[in-house]
Design a protein around this nucleic acid. Structure first.
Lengths: 225, 225
DNA sequence: CAATAAATGTAATCAATGATTACATGATTG
DNA sequence: CAATCATGTAATCATTGATTACATTTATTG
């Protein structure tokens, strides 16, 4: 409509000022704009057409790169998961203590922190009915890598005789259920019912995580707090 | 809710064969049909128009009873929550043991069982961004009643010296986070990533719940298992 | 009991969205 | 250069939430 149609495709340098008939990088930009829409307006604000609008292309253009909306959302989830995973890896790398349970706690904190700061992105990677999780090698791999790290830490904890329960797989599911539940309670808006003010959510989550981890270890009470 | 107040529009007995201009009970039937749509086709299958179709009225008719879709979904959530709460109350009434932690475990099992058997209904009462939770006294009341029951049980457990941690409110949030996380993992389709077959989900959830409750109590290991 | 008001339903219509099809344009390459 | 493929547009469709004007049934009341 309003926009001129400069018939030059190239020159899409960093400036990205001049739209051309061929966008040059539409696929990635659609994912980026969808992430922005999610961040700013929640899941309901994410539509194929809105992403196309932001990218400056026609409503039909996205379907050249994604057969349907679910495939686009899967690509969005892949990028979100990449960031999620990177932040967890960073937190683990920054945890100096080598106590495996403390390292697991550090993962949990990073998990919760990311979810709190990126609620809609967390929602996107979590609702595996709205994305093709099984069809995405990247999603499966990154998810498995997080699980593998916790698994290794639990094995080490068991070898050090820290664990009260022998079924490590069960512990792992319980741990995931706890942090997932906390993150979901946040995303789904449950904390107001629990008299937890917004400012206290971070601290409450941390304390709940500590309570849970304490329940896993054998005897030694945690030194601090 | 069984009793229909027959406003005598048109002989809508059990046969319900003769549609009349005035339905007579449209509000409740819309809620019922929406619940059925959710049960059979998931959240995506629930639309105002589909409910109207099933009720045999025009697409605009529902808007005489609900100002918008969210209000309808809130009414749906109220009915689902009523059933959810009733089942939890029943399970608690049927738990003979008076050990407060076992009674809490019974609530958790009923919670998980209902969510497993009614995943979309659970999703509806859980996603408080898609319903007007704060605007519904019924939703708030029933939710608060469940919390109050657990609170009382935790108080009793504390008085009996069963609890390892003094902060009961924190324990309560942790407990809710755990069962909510498990239920959400189920609803959101996470269990396949955990090598938990569908048939094992019920047992896995029960074991995770036990693991968590065991982590809360002071010393006494559970007798069974 | 009839007139009138209120409640409740319908028809028509609108805007937004996901999706498809036919066509246009630009890029790639033999 | 010309053929071919990738990538964009325009036009269109069905579905959905929502609104408005109108119709019909029920309730109220003089």
């Amino acid at each position: 409509m309003s926009t001129v149609k400069p018939t030059r495709t190239g020159d899409r340098q960093a400036g990205e000022g001049s739209p051309a008939y061929h966008h040059g990088n539409l696929r990635e930009e659609l994912v980026e704009q969808a992430l922005k829409l999610a961040e700013e307006g929640g899941l309901l604000a994410v539509s194929v057409r809105a992403a196309a609008r932001l990218a400056g292309v026609s409503p039909a253009a996205p379907f050249r790169h994604f057969p349907d909306k679910m495939t686009l959302m899967t690509a969005v989830a892949e990028e979100a998961m990449r960031r999620f995973r990177a932040e967890i890896a960073l937190a683990l790398a920054q945890e100096v203590d080598d106590d495996p349970m403390l390292r697991i706690r550090a993962i949990g904190r990073a998990y919760l922190d990311w979810a709190r700061r990126n609620p809609t992105h967390f929602e996107i990677i979590s609702s595996r009915r709205s994305i093709d999780f099984d069809g995405s090698p990247s999603l499966g791999r990154e998810n498995a890598e997080i699980q593998a790290q916790i698994e290794a830490l639990l094995l080490e904890a068991a070898q050090r005789g820290l664990l009260r329960c022998n079924d490590r797989h069960l512990i792992q599911i319980a741990a995931r259920a706890l942090v997932y539940g906390l993150a979901r309670m946040l995303v789904d808006g449950h904390f107001p019912s629990w008299q937890v003010a917004d400012a206290d959510i971070e601290g409450t989550m941390a304390k709940v995580l500590d309570l849970f981890v304490d329940g896993l270890v054998k005897e030694r009470p945690r030194p601090e707090l």
